[in-house]
């Protein structure tokens, strides 16, 4: 084998196998996680129930029949290593891989939609319109979904826009709120408590259990924000399913 697979594999309880590619929030590392997830999703691992990519690691969670069977779990581990070695996925995204989907998300910045816009701009030492331009210029990537169904953790936030979380989290953040939490960006899929700084709101519905797929965004997707005004927000919100 040319390169030893650059990940550590550890058991997570009886049912989980965790593949750790690193311990940092880093776009290249996260891209390897998504590449490995694609390879392993196609590997038809017996008993696999969930495959959960996060920033720098990937969890494979198996059903009880597999978790109860040491020999089967050893075989699964062998197949995981073999599949990733064959694909070279542990080293880099697969050559010729389909390009990531790009999802455009319209955002109404500031005002009632983005109550923290001014404070974030002040923190960054720029004016509000510059903040909007720089936030909307970013090329974001869905590193993972978590916290609540359909909540995307986005990589790619302009470092100048990093902003500390609120000292006291809000008990209610409206659905669609586009927010900054430290170096991370995210979007609240429904009304939730939260301590991230809210800079705007999208009229798009990020999570709807009755929809297939239920989430607007999937791990690995690319995201572009587009600034819209209140009138367009109202029009899109009215048209949203």
């Amino acid at each position: 084998m040319a390169a030893s697979p650059a990940f550590a594999l550890e058991a997570m309880g009886e049912s989980g196998l965790l593949l750790r590619f690193g311990e940092r929030i880093d776009a290249a590392l996260n891209a390897r996680v998504h590449a490995a997830a694609r390879v392993l999703r196609d590997a038809a691992l017996p008993g696999l129930e969930d495959l959960v990519p996060t920033y720098a690691s990937l969890l494979l969670r198996f059903d009880a029949a597999a978790a109860a069977d040491a020999a089967r779990m050893r075989e699964v581990e062998r197949r995981v290593r073999a599949a990733l070695a064959a694909a070279g996925a542990a080293a880099q995204p697969i050559a010729g891989d389909a390009p990531a989907r790009v999802v455009e998300i319209p955002v109404c910045y500031g005002g009632d939609c983005g109550p923290d816009l001014e404070a974030v701009a002040a923190h960054a030492g720029i004016d509000a319109s510059t903040l909007i331009a720089r936030h909307a210029a970013g090329d974001y990537r869905v590193a993972m979904l978590g916290f609540a169904p359909g909540f995307p953790y986005l990589l790619g936030l302009d470092p100048a826009l990093h902003a500390p979380r609120l000292a006291t989290p809000r008990t209610r953040v409206p659905a669609g709120s586009v927010a900054i939490g430290g170096a991370q960006a995210g979007i609240y899929p429904r009304e939730l408590p939260g301590g991230w700084r809210i800079v705007g709101r999208t009229p798009l519905v990020l999570f709807d259990a009755a929809r297939e797929p239920p989430c607007l965004l999937a791990p690995g997707d690319r995201v572009r924000f587009r600034a819209i005004d209140a009138a367009e927000f109202a029009r899109l919100a009215g048209a949203a399913p």
Binding site: A37, R61, L145, P149, F151, P214
Partner: peptide
């Protein structure tokens, strides 16, 4: 509901 954890939806 297994199978949705990658979308932030727990079992």
């Amino acid at each position: 509901r297994p199978g949705y954890a990658q979308l932030g939806i727990g079992r």
